[in-house]
């Protein structure tokens, strides 16, 4: 009886000590996950996700409060990357998913006020005062910040047109 109590006590003490030591030496400062996710995000702080900037979204995703797919400019590829990093599954690309949107300028309305140019976080809009502006599609993050700054509603968000090089077969309809 005594031996049993003694041995269990010693066992408990030793394991407790091991846990304590592990806690001391393997403790992680801050949450590297948040920083890691933030590094993956576009960084344009567009706020489309509803969180304060990309850092806020990263913290929410890491805490499980937001879906990895919450970032519209990041699109499906970002969602998949983050989901892989977190080891969770994410539903990407439903049938009605229009894909990433980019800004486009209706040249007949644009007055060349350059407000959108100043608002663009990625310098994706070209043009000067009193000149019609144009969007560099490859550089546009789709953050839609320019939309609110346009006084003539010449800016619209449009899906990226699919080219011959980018087109691929859709997934076959599921078999019965």
């Amino acid at each position: 009886m005594l031996a049993a109590i003694l041995s269990l006590t010693i066992l408990g003490a030793v394991l407790g000590a091991v846990l304590g030591v592990a806690n001391r030496f393997f403790q992680v400062e801050g949450n590297p996950l948040v920083e890691e996710i933030e590094a993956l995000m576009p960084g344009s702080n567009c706020g489309q996700c509803g969180f304060p900037g990309c850092a806020g979204a990263a913290a929410a995703i890491a805490a499980g409060q937001a879906s990895p797919a919450c970032c519209p400019p990041g699109g499906r590829s970002l969602a998949v990357t983050i989901a892989q990093r977190l080891g969770v599954s994410v539903d990407v690309g439903g049938a009605d998913d229009p894909g990433p949107l980019v800004a486009d300028i209706d040249e007949s309305i644009c007055i060349g006020c350059t407000r959108c140019i100043r608002a663009c976080p990625t310098d994706a809009i070209l043009g000067g005062p009193k000149q019609i502006h144009n969007v560099l599609r490859d550089s546009c993050s789709g953050c839609a910040q320019c939309i609110d700054h346009c006084p003539t509603a010449a800016m619209v968000m449009q899906p990226v047109p699919i080219t011959l090089q980018q087109w691929f077969w859709p997934k076959p309809a599921s078999q019965g």
Binding site: S77, D138, S141
Partner: peptide, 16 residues
Amino acid sequence: ARARGTQRNETIRTLT
């Protein structure tokens, strides 16, 4: 498409 998207995000981060 995912590879292209990753590339794009990279570009956009750099530009930002």
